[in-house]
Simulated assay, not measured.
Amino acid sequence: MKNFLTLILIIAGGSVFGQREIDENGRPIGAKPAFLVSNVEDVYLKKNESFIAGAEVKLDYSLPKGVTSGKLTLFHPRKDEELQSYTLSSETGSVTVNVKEMPVSFFSAGLYDPQGKLVKSLNVID
């Protein structure tokens, strides 16, 4: 009985201490995925840094694949107030915002699909 108990403890201890740590995807830490995923996001909303104009900001967007319409809404960063809204009619494109017409120099932008679901958001500082 004593030998049997010792054998059980050795097997249990070996299995506990022999486990490798895993990441949030279930792979051993440091392991690479079996296939590579594209580094470029299909959906984005970003400020175009190459567009330089004191009174305007250009926002580039891309809607989810297959979605050809949507809405870009600009919000006050500290109040629950909609400042401007733009209807989008293509999967990718850009919107030029006249900052001088805005009551604030920075704002939050939300990219929405046709059903009104938020796809991406961005804080824009001029």
Score class of each variant (00 low, 15 high):
31 A>D: 15
45 L>N: 00
53 A>Q: 09
33 P>V: 12
33 P>H: 12
45 L>G: 01
47 K>L: 12
39 N>Q: 10
31 A>C: 09
25 N>D: 13
23 D>H: 06
26 G>D: 09
42 D>Q: 15
29 I>D: 11
41 E>Y: 03
43 V>A: 06
36 L>W: 09
51 F>Y: 12
44 Y>V: 04
45 L>A: 01
31 A>K: 11
46 K>R: 14
53 A>L: 05
49 E>G: 03
26 G>Y: 11
41 E>H: 14
20 R>A: 06
52 I>A: 05
25 N>M: 13
50 S>W: 02
23 D>L: 05
25 N>P: 00
31 A>H: 14
14 G>D: 01
41 E>T: 13
39 N>M: 08
31 A>F: 14
40 V>W: 04
20 R>H: 11
36 L>A: 14
40 V>Y: 08
38 S>P: 00
19 Q>E: 07
41 E>G: 15
52 I>H: 09
39 N>E: 04
27 R>L: 15
13 G>R: 03
38 S>N: 14
50 S>F: 06
34 A>F: 13
52 I>G: 00
46 K>P: 00
20 R>F: 09
14 G>K: 01
54 G>Y: 04
53 A>S: 08
24 E>W: 09
36 L>S: 12
39 N>D: 06
25 N>Q: 15
29 I>W: 09
16 V>P: 02
20 R>K: 15
18 G>P: 06
39 N>P: 10
15 S>P: 00
24 E>V: 13
47 K>R: 10
53 A>I: 00
14 G>M: 01
16 V>H: 04
38 S>K: 04
16 V>N: 02
39 N>R: 09
36 L>T: 12
15 S>V: 11
52 I>Q: 10
44 Y>G: 05
48 N>H: 07
50 S>H: 08
43 V>P: 00
36 L>V: 11
54 G>D: 08
22 I>P: 01
35 F>A: 15
29 I>T: 13
34 A>G: 06
46 K>C: 02
48 N>I: 02
13 G>E: 01
46 K>L: 11
37 V>S: 11
28 P>R: 09
38 S>H: 03
52 I>R: 11
41 E>F: 05
19 Q>L: 13
14 G>W: 02
34 A>I: 14
43 V>C: 02
46 K>D: 04
33 P>F: 14
22 I>C: 06
22 I>N: 05
